[in-house]
Simulated assay, not measured.
Amino acid sequence: MSTPPFLTLPAGVRRTSLETSRGTFAVLEALPGSGVSDRCPALLVPGYTGSKEDFIAVLQTLAAPGRRVVAIDMRGQYETPGAGDDPAAYTRAALGADVAALLEALGPDPVHLVGHSFGGLVTREAVLDGPVRPASYTLMSSGPAALTGPSAAKARALREAIPQLGMAQIWELSIGPDAIARGVAPEIVDFLKARTLGNCPAGLMAMAHELVTAPDRVDELAKLGTETGLRMLVLYGEDDDVWDPREQAVMAERLNAARVVIPSAAHSPAVDAPETTAAALTAFWRQCERAQR
């Protein structure tokens, strides 16, 4: 898989694919400079309308201490093929089964699992219902249940607009002009356009429905953590505008999870404050590995 000319990857990070029992997934893979991975690997799962590239700025730092780090496009996102127009292929349960297959493929060592935003709702399904227990579990800028308020309204609006306009027109009328108005660099605008048009429309519509209907499964997750000793982290930006930071703080308490608030970050800490975010994840993973030893 070649690197798009408008997006340069850091040294030690490559585009490749990962074969699983549920199909092939496009990934960004980072390895330590030594080439030797002697710590548990990590799997990073993006959010709605996102992709593996949302983690570019943290991959090299996360891999440096000696671990393989893989960020994915979920089924139907950007460079991972969709599964047709069947909404059932893009439910939280179906996408969670994909994540479980990815955890298995990255084994045999336990894998540190991170779910960002909608990816948090998806990975939660894998943790609760999948056969593979991760080495640790991090919810990044995700919430206990469905989106509410303006964020939910945006997801519903996109779901309704896709069949009427198509993604190309949505880019030209809304997403593209907004990126340019925000001063996004031209090469990033080019990437965002490629990603927008690469997403599976049926997948986007089905995922939007999942975002606004997801039930609260925090108590189930807390019970699993108590029974299995699974260590969890709730990490979010202090200015998150998708799930209220106060709501995420309460979720951390319900889970008896560690909590890290990233200063000067909004909904995408790995983009807004990559070094601080990578340091927090690395410290948490090391704590978990020491405890397991």
Rank of each mutant, 00 (worst) to 15 (best):
M1K: 09
S2T: 15
P4A: 08
P5I: 04
L9P: 01
G12T: 06
E29T: 01
L31W: 00
S37T: 15
L43H: 00
V45D: 01
G47F: 03
G47E: 00
K52C: 07
K52S: 11
D54V: 03
F55T: 06
A57M: 08
A57H: 08
A63D: 00
A64P: 08
G66H: 03
R68G: 03
V70Q: 02
A71W: 00
I72S: 01
R75P: 04
Y78H: 15
E79A: 13
T80R: 05
T80Q: 04
A83G: 07
G84D: 09
A88F: 06
T91C: 09
R92S: 13
A93Y: 03
A94G: 06
G96Y: 02
A97P: 04
L103N: 02
P108N: 02
P108A: 15
V111M: 03
H112A: 11
L113D: 02
V114G: 02
G115H: 03
G119L: 00
G119P: 05
G120Y: 01
L121C: 04
V122M: 01
E125Q: 14
A126D: 03
L128E: 02
S136V: 08
M140R: 02
G143W: 04
A145F: 08
A146E: 10
L147F: 15
G149W: 10
S151R: 11
A153Y: 00
R156C: 10
R156F: 03
L158E: 03
E160G: 12
Q164F: 00
M167T: 14
M167G: 04
W171S: 06
L173C: 06
S174Q: 13
G176W: 12
D178W: 12
A179D: 12
R182V: 04
G183S: 08
G183T: 12
A185Q: 13
P186D: 15
P186F: 10
P186V: 07
V189N: 07
F191G: 00
N199C: 13
A208G: 12
L211Y: 06
L211K: 01
V212G: 00
T213R: 05
P215A: 08
V218L: 08
E227A: 15
R231H: 14
M232Y: 11
Y236A: 01
Y236T: 10
G237F: 01
E238T: 05
D241E: 13
D244F: 12
A252D: 11
E253R: 14
R254F: 10
N256D: 13
A257T: 10
R259Y: 09
R259I: 12
V260K: 00
A265Q: 05
A266E: 12
H267Y: 09
S268H: 09
A270I: 02
E275L: 10
T277D: 03
A279V: 06
A283G: 10
Q287V: 12
Q287E: 15
C288Y: 01
